[in-house]
């Protein structure tokens, strides 16, 4: 059986907000290690890989690996019944036909209990090869969200060019064109806002802005985001949390 108690229930609410528009149904794979999820969107253009490590929960108990098939829209609806400061406990027994959720307020004088019906989801698990990326950009997650949203006014896609000087996000469309360049600035006072670039080779890649904007729904989970790129391989957008991560992979656009 699974028992996982999360002191900051708001984290789970934010995680659901960050994935529920990209994927509808997914298995939460529970094991000793924690709770993981991997799923592609319907069009197989983007993939979400989530890990909530066991040490983020107190206590965390999972005797036997379990796959909890969840409709994410339903789960996010139930999570809306939890207060932002509530402690959330997830429980499932080995038959895994329901997921029990308990929300306790901080005064511990209001306890609400919900049960969500689970479903059988036959999803294939994909092997994600270890990749050494040609360019890795670390930047403010709020800045990345702003750039994606701003450029979406101009075009459906963005060209990302990374050199050792900086990273340029450019978009061209019917009404005109726009570009935002962030210079590498490791010396800024505010570490959280620094743009850092690790570069083996310059890269120039095109991606759908619709998906990137969707990924930025994870912004409340982390102040930093990393963009890992190599020519003609999927972009990796990673938000690191205290005990885990949310990674998005996006297939590039090719051709002129």
């Amino acid at each position: 059986m699974l028992e996982a108690r999360l002191q900051t229930g708001a984290l789970l609410k934010k995680v659901l907000e960050a994935i529920k528009e990209l994927i509808t149904d997914a298995n939460f794979d529970c094991s000793d290690n924690g709770i993981a999820l991997q799923a592609m969107d319907n069009s197989h253009v983007a993939l979400v890989a989530l890990l909530l490590r066991h040490d983020g929960f107190e206590p965390y108990r999972c005797d036997r690996s379990l796959a909890l098939g969840v409709n994410l829209v339903s789960l996010s609806k139930v999570l809306r019944c939890a207060g932002n400061d509530d402690i959330i406990t997830l429980k499932a027994d080995d038959t895994a036909d329901v997921l029990s959720l308990t929300f306790e307020n901080t005064d511990n004088d209001r306890i609400s209990e919900y049960e969500l019906k689970l479903m059988d989801i036959d999803s294939e698990h994909l092997g994600i090869p270890d990749t050494t990326y040609e360019a890795v950009v670390q930047m403010s997650s709020a800045e990345f969200a702003r750039i994606c949203k701003d450029l979406q006014v101009l075009s459906d896609s963005v060209q990302i060019d990374v050199t050792k000087e900086g990273v340029k996000f450019g978009a061209k469309g019917e009404l005109g064109s726009g570009a935002v360049t962030l210079k590498q600035n490791g010396n800024v006072d505010k570490e959280e806002e620094a743009t850092l670039i690790e570069l083996q080779q310059n890269v120039s890649l095109n991606f759908s802005l619709k998906y990137l904007v969707n990924f930025t729904k994870a912004t409340p989970l982390a102040s930093r985001v990393s963009l890992s790129m190599s020519s003609e391989v999927p972009l990796l957008v990673e938000y690191k949390m205290e005990a885990g991560y949310i990674r998005y992979y996006l297939a590039p656009k090719i051709g002129e």
């Binding site: 592609m40 253009v45 994909l126 999927p234 992979y249 297939a251 656009k253 090719i254």
Partner: peptide, 14 residues
């Protein structure tokens, strides 16, 4: 015109 690729050719089912 650019075309959108998919992830199928990059990631293998395990």
């Amino acid at each position: 015109q650019q075309s959108q690729t998919t992830l199928d050719s990059f990631f293998d089912p395990t």
